[in-house]
Design a protein around this nucleic acid. Structure first.
Length: 568
RNA sequence: UGGGGCGUUGCCAAGCGGUAAGGCACGGGACUCUGACUCCCGCAAUCGCAGGUUCGAAUCCUGCCGCCCCAGCCA
């Protein structure tokens, strides 16, 4: 079993504990995940999703799913569907609480009206460029809009006419009246509503004004009863505005707003050798560097799923990376470790030879086939056994043979013996070459006394290698993957250089790979360990077209290869 | 020259005034019909730096240094 580490304490858990102990919001805990449907979810989102979900669970609270669809120009149904699929696959449960921020546009409109009546919001006619200029800079205060002191009546009238579609895009906005001299730019009369004559994927053409995130998000949190609104660190600067909106909602909309929601920020996940930015991921897809959002090389949930990673591995990983406020980049090796550990006790062992070299066992009778019994999962009898055909000609991996091996090499070499997994011990007698000197075949002899399970020979060999019978081999396609990026920190690279130097070996397709017959008969979506190679996943998407394609999920650790590398 | 954050081993990360958890990576060894898995052992005289408070500081105070984020009618 994949064992989870002790749930180490984290600062968010500590904050929530304290809030509960103090009886805030009646001691309730209610979290949410608020994706914008404008892209696919990636493993960084998984961290956020599971953090929110776990916090709710840990305190016997609730978890909502809410699509943040305040910008119709960027959002699409395709992404809503993919996000839903990914979340279900991850195993989070929002019960009956699937919401869209657009569900409450009407209430927000009313809230905006009350803000106007309270003299805390106004319609501003400044152009986008003027608003920018009036905002000031990081070091200089802004100046007040000339429209800042319009009467409540005029503001109410103008705002209603904005809603009624009387004004073109960009001509007016609704702004909060806060503080143009604030050191925090977010507080310099932030825009609350803008005019957008764009059809929305849910509300159609009902609205032509749409709320901004900073106005919508805190209100919606409070409306849904969210007690702890977890988000990434770049929103820290927005917290005063978040609090401003929640406080006003509580005061001005007491009939529907009861919760004093609180925002807590944490550092987003970064992984070595991969990018998490939505834009760069989109670029990989749109420029055709990968097959799609679900390409197994992508760090998307869909990509990881298609690679063969199980949700339990992602859950384990997101627990192990921890939660903190410091910027960090997690070593890809940790993810790979979690994936291997998760598959270790589940994936049945099979044999396939990725880089075949033929071996003829000269003392094995021509035409004779023996059905050998192999365990599916050594150490776990409940996983059962299977029959694997063995014959006179077999394939072994080319690198399991060395003509002039160092003494530490435990595999096959001229005059040396090795055990064929689950079969017999063979000795290499002869090396056959083509006219170019390339090794094309080995001749070997087997020792009949050494049959696996009943070896009476007393022989001890160091090496055990996998094999596939030539006469019975099924043929499969195998896809091997390497990182898309060769740089450890691609996010920190110059983007054009980054895309000009993508790893040319990120994908290797091996056709006609000899494999034991069971691999061709497996159900789509099956996961196996190809012995001594790695974990592989029978691609369900290709299976729909009748193709048998195995994707590499993650390779096995290989201390021999590591040793060889060191020697060079 | 403004505001908000962050700095604990190669990478993460506990720690919240009482004398540096854990994981990954790495090195060594055992075991092994997967050079996998598993199991042992090793891996921070020190917590960005410098002062100060204290019997005692990674934890408190002061000052430096370094890194990240913010000037969308994006989220």
């Amino acid at each position: 079993m994949a064992h989870s580490p002790e749930v180490t304490s984290n600062f968010i858990y500590n904050i929530i504990s304290k809030d509960v102990a103090e009886g805030k919001n009646g001691g309730r805990v209610h979290t949410r995940f608020p994706p914008e449907p404008n892209g696919y979810l990636h493993i960084g989102h998984a961290k956020a999703i599971l953090l929110n979900y776990r916090m709710a669970k840990a305190f016997n609270g609730k978890f909502n799913l809410r699509f943040d669809d305040t910008n119709p120009a960027k959002e699409e149904q395709e992404f809503v569907d993919s996000i839903l699929e990914d979340l279900r696959w991850l195993g989070v449960d929002w019960e009956d609480r699937l919401f869209y921020t657009s569900d409450s546009f009407e209430l927000k409109y009313e809230f905006a009206r009350r803000l106007i009546k309270a003299g805390r919001a106004y319609v501003c006619d400044l152009s986008q460029e003027e608003i920018r200029q009036y905002r000031g800079t990081l070091t200089e205060p802004g100046k007040e809009s000339p429209y800042r002191n319009r009467s409540v009546e005029e503001n109410l009238d103008l705002f209603e006419r904005m809603r009624n579609g009387e004004f073109p895009d960009g001509s007016r906005v609704l702004r909060a009246k806060i503080d143009m001299a604030s050191g925090n730019l977010n507080m310099r009369d932030p825009v609350l509503y803008r005019i957008l004559h764009t059809s929305h994927h849910r509300t159609g053409n009902k609205w032509c004004i749409y709320p901004m995130y900073d106005f919508d998000h805190p209100f919606t949190d409070a409306l849904e009863g969210i007690t702890h609104s977890l988000c990434s660190i770049e929103y820290s600067d927005h917290r005063p505005l978040y609090d401003w909106v929640v406080a006003n909602a509580l005061e001005l909309m007491p009939e529907v707003i009861k919760t004093r929601s609180r925002q807590i920020e944490f550092a987003r996940l970064n992984l070595t050798y991969t990018v998490m930015s939505k834009r760069k991921l989109r670029r990989l897809v749109e420029e055709g560097h990968v097959f799609g959002w679900d390409d197994p090389r992508m760090p998307t949930i869909a990509g990881l799923r298609r690679r063969g990673v199980r949700p339990s591995a992602i859950a384990d990983f997101t627990e192990r990376v921890g939660v903190a406020r410091a910027d960090s980049t997690i070593d890809l090796a940790l993810l790979e470790h979690c994936i291997r550990q998760d598959l270790q006790d589940h994936a049945h062992r099979m044999m396939a030879v990725l880089d075949p070299l033929k071996v003829v066992i000269t003392n094995w009778p021509e035409g004779k086939t023996e059905m050998l019994e192999l365990e599916n999962l050594p150490g776990d009898e409940s996983a059962g056994v299977r029959k694997v055909p063995f014959g006179r000609e077999i394939y072994i991996e080319r690198d399991d043979f060395m003509e002039n091996p160092p003494k530490s090499f435990h595999r096959l070499a001229p005059g040396r013996e090795v055990r064929l997994k689950g079969a017999y011990i063979i000795k290499c007698d002869e090396v056959i070459r083509d006219r170019d000197g390339r090794i094309i075949e080995l001749r070997a002899s087997y020792d009949p006394r050494t049959k696996s399970g009943g070896d009476a020979s007393g022989k001890k060999v160091k090496g055990v290698i996998h094999w596939v019978s030539v006469a019975h081999a099924a043929r499969i396609t195998v896809r091997l993957f390497e990182n898309l990026f060769t740089q450890e920190d691609p996010e920190g690279e110059n983007e054009e250089e980054l895309f000009a130097n993508l790893n040319p070996r990120s994908l290797t397709v091996l056709e006609n790979v000899p494999a034991e017959p069971a691999l061709a008969a497996a159900a789509p979506g099956s996961r196996f360990q190809f012995m001594r190679k790695g974990y592989f996943y029978l691609d369900p998407k290709d299976a729909e077209e009748g193709k048998i394609v195995y994707n590499l999920t993650v390779g096995l650790r290989d201390s021999w290869a590591k040793q060889m590398q060191k020697g060079q």
